[in-house]
Simulated assay, not measured.
Amino acid sequence: MASSQSAPSKSQVVLVTGASSGIGAEVARQFVQRGHTVYGTTRHPENVADPIRGVNYVRLDNADYDSAAQCVAKIGVIDIVINNAGESQAGALEDTSMEAIEKLFAVNVFGPIALTKAVLPGMRERGTGTVVMVGSMLSSFPVAFRSNYAATKSALKAFALATRREVAPYGIRMISVEPGTIATGIGDRRSIHIGDGSPYADEYETLASATRTNEDAGIGAATMARVIVDAALAEHPKPFYAKGNQAGIVFALRRLLPRQLILDMTARKHGLPRVRV
């Protein structure tokens, strides 16, 4: 899905979470290039390996909800929030502990919600603001062995789309963005949950191999970042944007084809054959 063209805008204060690497770093870089004041979050601001000139690094731990309020209080006025920080997880549901699932939801869902709640009062009082939730196309096209991750991204999307009307009367825009497969090396940082001797091990390895191939061929972080920045700066942004994995075509097919066929096609894309039940 093509992004809207960004409207000419005055310099704004932007907070980008997870700005030390990947999409977040590119989003922060592009906002700086467009003349905005940019704060980038990381759990350890003093340890950013490759800091971006013009980005002010501040502490935020998505799993520590109090740090959201502290981060916002330190910055003050914030015009745009890009909720990008999160963790990737894969594995068999049966082999994944409830502790690991709860931690993933804390980082990927509850943390962004806590940060959004922290910025809403100021945005509402000023009558303007933008919050972008960066999800994943796995929300729209879920696949085996990524159930927990897909569920967190689905929660973020529903949160953004439902809250959009709630805060619109106060000049606040809520936007959901779904990246497809991105070549950022996130696979090297993904937590894997497959038990010793797991009956799911062989099929998981098939999916993992296909996922590595797909990610190596994915679009660049800079391309995805441009969609996010354009959406955030658009005069009248759409509720939803997607980029990568031939988004325009596959979302059209999703509307036209039976759900089971879409699930089968998504599985096949990840190396898994159809299983009739």
Rank of each mutant, 00 (worst) to 15 (best):
R146T: 08
V13C: 11
A7P: 11
S97R: 03
V275M: 14
Q70I: 12
T116C: 07
Y241Q: 06
A247C: 14
V13D: 15
I80M: 11
A28D: 00
T223L: 09
P179I: 08
I186Q: 15
R29A: 15
R189E: 15
A118W: 02
Q5G: 15
C71H: 05
T152C: 11
A201M: 10
Q33D: 05
M224G: 04
R124Q: 02
D61R: 11
F110G: 00
T223C: 14
E87A: 05
S209C: 13
S191W: 08
D196K: 10
Y65T: 05
N83Q: 11
V16P: 06
H36K: 11
G171N: 07
F145Y: 13
G180V: 02
I194R: 08
V107Y: 01
R212C: 01
F251D: 09
R255A: 07
V48F: 13
E99L: 13
A118Y: 03
V277H: 12
N214D: 09
H270R: 02
S88F: 15
F251G: 12
Y149S: 03
V58I: 15
D50H: 10
V275D: 15
L263V: 04
R212Q: 14
E205Y: 03
S4E: 14
F141P: 02
A2F: 14
G91R: 04
V131K: 01
Y39Q: 04
A85C: 11
Q260G: 13
R274Q: 15
A221Y: 06
L104E: 01
I175Q: 02
A234N: 12
L253A: 13
I249Q: 14
T96E: 09
I192K: 05
T17N: 12
N148F: 08
D196G: 02
A267Q: 09
S191G: 07
D216A: 14
L156Q: 02
R212F: 10
T206H: 07
T152L: 04
S136M: 12
N108E: 05
S136C: 01
I192C: 04
T41A: 07
M133I: 02
V227M: 12
A69N: 13
A155Y: 03
L104K: 00
A49P: 03
T184G: 08
L120R: 03
L15V: 00
T184S: 13
M137C: 10
P51R: 08
L120N: 08
L257E: 06
M224P: 00
V167G: 04
A69L: 10
E102K: 00
T163C: 12
E203S: 09
V227C: 14
I101C: 06
G76R: 04
V38L: 09
K269S: 10
F251Q: 15
G127K: 06
V32Q: 05
I23S: 05
H270D: 10
E87H: 00
A210E: 12
R190G: 04
M133R: 01
L233W: 03
G91H: 13
R274C: 14
P51E: 05
R268K: 15
A69S: 13
T96L: 14
Q12G: 04
L253G: 02
A247H: 04
K74P: 10
T266G: 06
